[in-house]
Computed example of a mutant assay.
Amino acid sequence: MEWSTKPRHPDLPFGSWADDLAAAFVRLEPRRLADHPFEGAISRADAAPIQISLVTATRHTVLRLASHIASSTDDLCFVNLQLEGVGRTTQRGHEQISTPGDLALADTTEPFEIANCHNFRLFCFAVPRGLLPKRMLDRPRLNLSATEGGRALSRTLAGYAELCLSDFQRAKTSAMVGAHLIDLISQAPEILTDVAAERVHIPVLLSMMLDHIDRHSDDPALGAATLAARFRCSERYVHRLFATTGRSVGEHVNEKRIVACTRRLLDSAARHKTIAEIAFAAGFRDISHFNRQFKRCNGLTPREFRRVTAAP
């Protein structure tokens, strides 16, 4: 579902934005921070038992007032992942400052204020209160951008949100992602306190490791030892995690590298590159190993693949 507001009358600075917020979230009151034109858009997807929204808007403040709560039966928490801009969430006298990559939590059963003093984008995860650990509700501090583990978690949350909001989502996939997102969000305090990896839930840690592989597959040294050092656990524990996927760390890494090489071989702009140059740039160290892996995945050697897919 989508909502978009671009007011045309000066005497109605927010247009239908208050109604759009109520339809997408709960009843909120928008207020101006400065005399400037307002624009806002919301895209929302259901990922039972939560809802995921992408909010893009010019700077403004929203308030959850006691009058809103008195006429509401909503029992939700908003967990906002800042993508652009800087947000300030104030509730129960506690202030959370969110820069890109940070989370902020707002409990809709009590008054709060969320101020964005600059134009902003954020993902909002609307989660039933009872599904979050109670320790998260009392003076939350969720500055994920402050640690490597937190940044990895932030990227993973954003990836799942993008998946659910894409045009290709399916109901079954969204439900699975919704449950997993709750696990990821619930683990944020532990990840930020820099606890040992073995104390982080397996699905959460595995998602973070897979995200690391996605982003660093071109590192020739990437493997179980690298992941163990990055996430402060033993290599044996890394192997145990990946055993639950049915594939080894090396198989996950090779798959990402082969995909990168396949795309490069299909790219007309890379025709001047040798196959070895493409393989080494993707992280392979041994051209014979690369050739075997490529043929196993694509049914052709890299040279044969390039020849048959070349434009006439």
Rank of each mutant, 00 (worst) to 15 (best):
A23P: 11
F125Q: 04
H252T: 02
T245C: 03
A70K: 10
L227P: 00
G283S: 09
A70M: 06
V55E: 07
T193H: 06
G87E: 00
H60F: 05
P189E: 10
G101L: 02
A158R: 08
A152S: 09
C124A: 15
L28E: 01
F120Y: 15
G130D: 14
F25Y: 11
D286I: 05
A197P: 12
Y237K: 11
V204Y: 11
L300M: 11
F112V: 00
H289K: 12
A311G: 05
P13D: 00
T244G: 02
P10I: 01
G283I: 03
A188G: 01
V26S: 05
D286N: 09
A281H: 10
L137P: 14
Q82H: 09
G150E: 06
R135Y: 05
M209F: 02
R155H: 13
H36S: 15
A228T: 07
V195N: 00
R247L: 12
T274H: 13
L137F: 02
G283Y: 06
I69C: 06
L142C: 04
Q187V: 01
A152M: 07
L33Y: 03
I213W: 07
T73G: 04
S166C: 14
R170K: 15
P140W: 00
V79E: 09
Q187F: 01
T61C: 14
L222N: 14
G178K: 12
Q51Y: 13
G246D: 03
R31P: 01
F78G: 11
T108S: 06
F112G: 00
T245G: 02
D46M: 13
P220N: 09
V253P: 02
S186P: 15
I287M: 13
L105I: 08
F294W: 06
G101K: 10
M208P: 13
L210E: 09
A47T: 11
S174C: 10
A126F: 07
V259Y: 12
